[in-house]
Amino acid sequence: MYLGAASCISFQDTFGNENPWNSLVAINAETQLVQPDYKEFVNPAALRRMSSVLKMGAAAGKSCLQQAGLENADAITVGTGLGCVRDTLKFLSAVYQDGEGGLSPTAFIQSTHNSIAGQLALMLGNHGYNMTHVQGALSLGYSLSDAELLIGEGDAKTVLVGAVDEKTDELVALLSKLSESADYKMPAIGEGGAFFLASRDKLSSSVAKMVGLNLTGKIEEEVDLVLSNPSKGFNYTQFSGEHFTSIGFGLFMALKAFEAGKVDNGHVSFVHPTRILVHHQLLGQEMSILLEKV
């Protein structure tokens, strides 16, 4: 399976940036997403009601297709660890504060995990396979695997694969209380949305071939560059913050590393990598993606 066009919204200047490796900046608890002008992707009336996760999904998904020069993809698979956090908490607080009556359904409708992929289908007029995988830190991995299965089965030639998770102040407060109680050192929480165009055939936009996908651990192979948290190699989560689908940022940076060729930015240096390993480990789950330049 080939991967090429990619679009990413993150704490870094990644959206529409050909070489994000040269503009990495340190993050802290106050760092905000570098957001595109969402009005280019979503009509303003709809935009007002949309949470961060839905906006990221819409913009990154659409722009990924545009970059691939495609009108549409045969299928959409999205991975998200926590889904629509803002709307879930919004609806829950209303349930308890309004005493289970007179509730507006908007937040409930938008709280469904598959509203990210469903909304993309709606915006793109995409009638194809539309899947959402929710498996913690493996959510993107299973979405990639699903895309591979579709291609293998002959059900799709192109698949738009996404990884999206949002953070809200309330989520961070809840996670810190939970971490405290569980005696777990909480990493800096991030958020982001990344979409990739996966294809059966090599397209003009293809950058790499996915030659390995391990959904239970490491891949031990000789490579030119390792993007990993927290172990050896370049720890990309320092720049994306940690979340269930932060590996989406890692995969995006890997694809851009093939294209960047030579990078020496004070954090990492590499020259024309041809094989890159992307690895992520979080809360007892671990996965690896092995890419080969095409």
Binding site: G83, T112, H113, N114, A117, G118, N130, M131, T132, H133, V134, Q135, L138, Y142, S145, L215
Partner: peptide
């Protein structure tokens, strides 16, 4: 292989 699908 262990995953969770969530499409309502």
């Amino acid at each position: 292989y262990t995953t969770t699908i969530s499409t309502a």
